[in-house]
């Protein structure tokens, strides 16, 4: 004991420097994480809470909407992640041959929507998707196609939100992939050129395999962020029509802050945590040391 105390005393500056950050981290992050697990086993009420065991979990697992929200989230991730990645890979490949300044210019253009709040982006798209007066139906009408109630239809609402996310997103993926591409040694390309390989073949044979760690990282991070989608749903559809766009975070929000049922909402949050945790494990397992950026 004395030995440890002596070490702590010796390192007092380190602890002192760490303390301010740790107070906030502990109080407003670590403690809430632990508390949320407790809450998921409680019936929390202002006038007194009680332990209810697995009741909250039983309730959410028998809730059809909870399963729909999971399905929507998987569908959303399956739509957004590959499209984001495809967009980022194509654009990175297209800007690669250019001068640094031109590359930076295009990176900035594609990154621009990222600094705009998701609320604003969603409001703009609500306007674009507006059935009678929106831009999209107008463009369709130029081709003689009838208008569609994009967000009012169970078949198109979620794809519309996915499309919106894909068009506006992917900017940081472009930056990351470009950085990784610039890190590929040029002699590999020179060798390929000497062999007479076409640009496309070079890209598939050399670039893509070497981008594997970056791509894997983007897939995992993209999937995790897909499971946290909320703002678009809140602003554009409130989870409708007929729950077609209800996501898990939206459902947590609704249960907790509109119906004030903190117990079941916490149980959902714990399930979300578990899902994200699985993806994180995949990332650590497959990528190991390679995520050092």
């Amino acid at each position: 004991m004395g030995k440890i105390w002596a070490r702590i005393k010796k390192d007092k500056w380190a602890y002192l420097f760490l303390l301010p950050s740790f107070i906030f981290f502990g109080t407003f992050f670590l403690f809430p994480v632990v508390w949320s697990i407790f809450l998921s086993f409680m019936d929390y009420q202002v006038w007194g809470s009680s332990f209810v065991g697995l009741d909250n979990y039983r309730e959410i697992l028998s809730d059809r909407i909870f399963w729909i929200s999971l399905r929507n989230n998987f569908f959303y991730a399956l739509g957004v992640v590959p499209l984001w990645l495809g967009k980022a890979l194509i654009i990175s490949a297209l800007i690669f041959p250019f001068r640094k300044s031109i590359q930076t210019f295009f990176k900035a253009v594609f990154y621009m929507p990222h600094v705009t709040s998701a609320v604003i982006i969603s409001m703009i798209w609500l306007w674009i998707y507006n059935p009678p007066f929106g831009l999209l139906n107008y463009i369709l009408s130029l081709f003689g196609r009838p208008g569609v109630a994009w967000l009012g239809n169970t078949k198109t609402a979620l794809p519309a939100i996915i499309a919106q996310t894909v068009v506006m997103g992917g900017g940081s993926s472009i930056v990351l992939i470009s950085a990784a591409m610039n890190g590929i040694p040029t002699h590999l390309y020179e060798a390929a050129e000497l062999d007479g390989a076409s640009k496309l073949v070079t890209w598939f044979r050399i670039t893509l395999p070497l981008l594997r760690p970056t791509i894997l990282y983007l897939v995992v991070m993209g999937t995790i962020s897909s499971f946290q989608v909320f703002t678009q749903v809140y602003t554009m559809t409130k989870g409708g029509p007929q729950f077609a766009t209800t996501t898990i975070v939206y459902l947590i929000f609704e249960k907790a802050f509109q119906n004030f049922r903190f117990g079941p909402a916490s149980a959902m949050a714990v399930v979300l945590f578990a899902i994200v945790f699985c993806f994180a494990i995949i990332q650590f397992k497959w990528l190991g040391e390679e995520i050092e950026y």
Partner: peptide
């Protein structure tokens, strides 16, 4: 009734689209 409200709305959405 508040927790049932969204199901109420969904019923009308489904009926009005004839889903």
């Amino acid at each position: 009734f508040s927790e049932a409200r969204k199901f109420w709305q969904a019923a009308f959405e489904a009926a009005f689209t004839r889903d």
